[in-house]
């Protein structure tokens, strides 16, 4: 029984952590975590809606 973690997962855009529970060579459980958050949804609130595209495109 072992738990492995791959962090960072590379060759993707963004930050990702993958953990897996491995029993006798088989993955019996797995977790994925996005390890970065900026709150763009909070930031766009209250702004001129015409510029929403400029902020959300930076997600």
């Amino acid at each position: 029984m072992a738990k492995i973690a791959i962090d960072p997962v590379t060759r993707i855009e963004g930050h990702l952590r993958i953990e897996a529970q491995v029993d006798a060579g088989k993955v019996t459980d797995a977790w994925s975590s996005g390890t970065m958050w900026r709150g763009i949804e909070t930031i766009v609130k209250g702004r001129d809606p015409r510029e929403c595209w400029a902020l959300t495109s930076r997600i």
Binding site: I6, D7, T10, R11
Partner: peptide, 9 residues
């Protein structure tokens, strides 16, 4: 460079 490098973890 996490976006382009070969190795991970």
């Amino acid at each position: 460079h996490e976006t382009i490098m070969a190795g991970s973890g």
